[in-house]
Design a protein around this nucleic acid. Structure first.
Lengths: 195, 195
DNA sequence: AAGTCAACTTGACACGGCGTCAAGTTTTTC
DNA sequence: GAAAAACTTGACGCCGTGTCAAGTTGACTT
């Protein structure tokens, strides 16, 4: 791997992280200043703004142990429980990565790498949705008229960062309200109604 | 009013519209070329890119008669029917404005005017949601545990342009499938279940 | 103690888009 | 046929990203 200077690298990444968390628009020069190095030195560690942001998300994922969190619902005893746990875990993860996510989403139009990186992250989320849906189908509880793909698409869309933004930031919801409603909607969406 | 030259103005607006419809990234120079005038002449009609895009959405709204369409569900006999009609009308309007919407959403971070203009458009949609929700409550069918605000927030979020993008473009859904599922979800979300 | 190498600094510059300005030309209007 | 409006051309400033060249600094050899 031979990283230039691991210390500086992580200083940059945490600088980017914290800035993105609070501030809307973050320039390379801002990150450099916060990390205590020159703007040009950033390019000794990352080839472009896009790659720096991508590295920041990976860094966050690592520090915050996303993967473990997202698969923490392995032990769920039912599809319903698995879905509920997944909504809770992912829904509560969103606010922690929202700053970086925002920045990465913003450059999707202009930067192919950013697009791929984000698509990749979202793919991991999608797999969580699929796992829950598969289990629900195995339980024989998949809502009539839905196939697995459609059901996963719906849950995945429901749990998008944009929707979180709109409800929490746009509509002023509390995080608890968000989680509660998402659980309710997710169940309503893919689980066959009692009768 | 005293518009410089109305002909040129609408040439610009239709040029912007058509470009945005097909192409992802559209520069001022592209619009000028398409309209058959010089780039600088655009600024004789619109003070900035943001205002040009805003004017383009207004132009589209006018040409396509959004307002009439969005209120076409006045005659609905029940809240349920009103909601269904609203989902159908708005959901089928999204693809027609998607190009411009995309561009306007993209500059939300950088431009306050664009932000306000978009918020304003979305406010109109929200009113449609509220009207349906109010009617549903009047019918005594609002799902237990939901207040009007929460219900409207949910429907409004469900019907966001971003969600349409994700399902139609990201997941490859047909427009019909999109409409059908949105109707189903909207009802499930806010209407009390049969018993 | 001299030498080397990696990490970093400073200052300059190109590029792409937006927006502006000044000076000229064409078209309309009266 | 003169004045006013609409538009053109060419140049320029601003901003942020990314690049380049020529230093400086400190640590590690030998």
């Amino acid at each position: 791997m031979s990283r230039k200077n691991t210390q500086t690298r992580t200083r940059i990444l945490t600088a980017a992280w914290h800035l993105l968390e609070t501030d809307g628009t973050v320039r390379m020069s801002d990150i450099a200043k916060q990390a205590g190095i020159s703007r040009q030195a950033l390019y000794l560690h990352f080839p472009s703004r896009a790659e720096l942001l991508i590295a920041t998300t990976r860094y966050l994922d690592e520090v915050k142990h996303v993967d473990e969190r997202l698969t923490a619902n392995r032990a769920a005893r039912s599809g319903r429980e698995k879905l509920s746990l997944f909504v809770e875990v992912w829904g509560n993860y969103i606010p922690e990565i929202h700053g970086v996510a925002r920045a990465l989403m913003a450059m999707q139009d202009s930067d192919e790498e950013a697009r791929n990186a984000w698509a990749d992250r979202m793919h991991a989320v999608r797999e969580g949705c699929e796992a829950a849906v598969d289990r629900i189908e195995a339980d024989g509880l998949l809502a009539p008229g839905l196939d697995r793909k459609t059901a996963s698409d719906l849950i995945w869309t429901l749990l998008s960062v944009r929707n979180w933004e709109q409800l929490r930031l746009g509509c002023g919801w509390s995080q608890e309200a968000y989680i509660a409603q998402m659980k309710r909607l997710a169940e309503l969406t893919v689980i066959a109604p009692d009768r």
